[in-house]
C-alpha cells in the first residue's frame, strides 16, 4: 500500500520532466525565429531584440534549459512581456473564477452523468438508454461556444432569466449573484463532460453487470437496485474515476472557450488575452500550470484506486 503510493508519486516525476522539456523545446525548436514570430508582423527590430532578451534566447541552449528548470523549481513560470508581471502573479489574480467554474462543473457533471450512465446500463436497449446515448453523441458534436451562445440567446436575451455575461465572486458579492452568473457557464461546460462520463459509466457498468459475481448476487436473491449500487457501481468505480481524471484535460480546453463566451475574467481569458497580445511567456506559463494541475489530479485519482479496489497493493 505504502510502496504503491510512493511508486505512483515517483512515476509522475518523469512525466513532469517531459512536459517541462517539451514546453522548453517547443519554443527553441520552432521553425524560424521565435522572437520575431512572437513579436508579430508589425514589430520593430528593437521589439524583437527586447523579446529575445526577455526569453533568454541569446544564451546556449543548455544554459537556457538549466536556468529555466532552476527557476521552474522555485515556482517561477516566467514574466509577461507586456505587463512585466510574473506569470504566477497573473495566475493568482485570475484563478478564482476558473477554479469555481471547474468545481461547479465537476460537481454538476458527476451528479448528472453517473446516475444517468448507470441507469442506461441497467436498462440497456430501452428508450432511456437510447436517450442517454443520443445525448452523449450530440454532446460530443456541438461546439462549446455555439452551445453557450444558444443558452445566452434563449435564457438571457429572450427569457431574461439570467444575466448575459460576467462573473460575481461568491466572497465579495454573496452566493446568489455568484450562482446567477455561474449557472449558464456551468451548464455549457458540463455538456461535453457529461457526455463523456455518462458514456463511460454506461460502458463500465454494463461490463460489470456481465460479471459472475453479479450473477452470484442475483442468485442470493439480492434486489436489482442493490445489485446495481453495491456490486456493479462499486466495481465500475475505477474506470469511471479514471475517465473523470482524463476528462479534466477536456475541461481545461472548454474553460478557455466558456470564459471567453461569458466574459469571465479567469485563466481562460488570460490565455485568450495572451494570444491576442502575443504574450508567449503567459501561454507557456499557463500550459505548464495546467499540465501540472492535470498531472496532480490524476495522481490523486491513481491513489484513490486503493479506496475502491483492495487488489491494488503493490
Amino acid at each position: 500500500m505504502f510502496s504503491y503510493v510512493i511508486k505512483r508519486i515517483l512515476a509522475t516525476i518523469p512525466v513532469i520532466v517531459i512536459v517541462a522539456a517539451f514546453v522548453f523545446l517547443m519554443l527553441r525548436l520552432s521553425p524560424g525565429d521565435p522572437a520575431s514570430v512572437i513579436a508579430g508582423d508589425y514589430a520593430t527590430a528593437e521589439d524583437i531584440v527586447r523579446i529575445r532578451e526577455a526569453l533568454g534566447l541569446n544564451e546556449p541552449i543548455l544554459v537556457q534549459f538549466t536556468k529555466w528548470v532552476g527557476s521552474l523549481m522555485q515556482g517561477d513560470l516566467g514574466i509577461s512581456i507586456f505587463t512585466n508581471l510574473p506569470v504566477t502573479t497573473l495566475i493568482g489574480q485570475r484563478i478564482e473564477p476558473t477554479l469555481m467554474l471547474t468545481l461547479t462543473t465537476i460537481i454538476f457533471t458527476v451528479l448528472v452523468a453517473v446516475p444517468l450512465g448507470t441507469l442506461a446500463a441497467w436498462k440497456a436497449g430501452s428508450w432511456i438508454d437510447r436517450g442517454v446515448m443520443l445525448f452523449s453523441v450530440a454532446g460530443f458534436s456541438v461546439p462549446v461556444f455555439v452551445l453557450g451562445y444558444i443558452l445566452i440567446y434563449v435564457v438571457a436575451i429572450k427569457l431574461q432569466w439570467l444575466p448575459v455575461q460576467g462573473y460575481r465572486s461568491m466572497f465579495e458579492h454573496g452566493l446568489w449573484p455568484f450562482l446567477r452568473h455561474i449557472i449558464m457557464p456551468t451548464l455549457t461546460l458540463s455538456v461535453i463532460f457529461i457526455a463523456l462520463i455518462a458514456r463511460m459509466t454506461r460502458a463500465s457498468v454494463m461490463e460489470v453487470l456481465q460479471e459472475d459475481y453479479v450473477r452470484t448476487a442475483r442468485a442470493k436473491g439480492q434486489s436489482e437496485v442493490k445489485v446495481l449500487l453495491r456490486h456493479a457501481l462499486r466495481n465500475a468505480a475505477v474506470p469511471i474515476v479514471t475517465v473523470i481524471g482524463i476528462g479534466i484535460a477536456l475541461l481545461i480546453g472548454g474553460v478557455v472557450v466558456t470564459e471567453s463566451v461569458y466574459n469571465i475574467p479567469g485563466l481562460g481569458r488570460l490565455v485568450l488575452d495572451a494570444v491576442l497580445a502575443r504574450d508567449y511567456p503567459i501561454i507557456q506559463g499557463l500550459i505548464l500550470f495546467f499540465s501540472f494541475i492535470y498531472i496532480l489530479i490524476n495522481l490523486i485519482i491513481d491513489l484513490s484506486y486503493t479506496l475502491f479496489d483492495p487488489r491494488i497493493r503493490y
Binding site: V15, I16, V17, F22, I252, G253, I283, I287, F290, S291
Partner: peptide, 10 residues
C-alpha cells in the same frame, strides 16, 4: 503521458 497532460487546445 507527458503529451497527454498538456491540454490539447493550449
Amino acid at each position: 503521458d507527458g503529451l497527454m497532460s498538456i491540454p490539447a487546445i493550449l
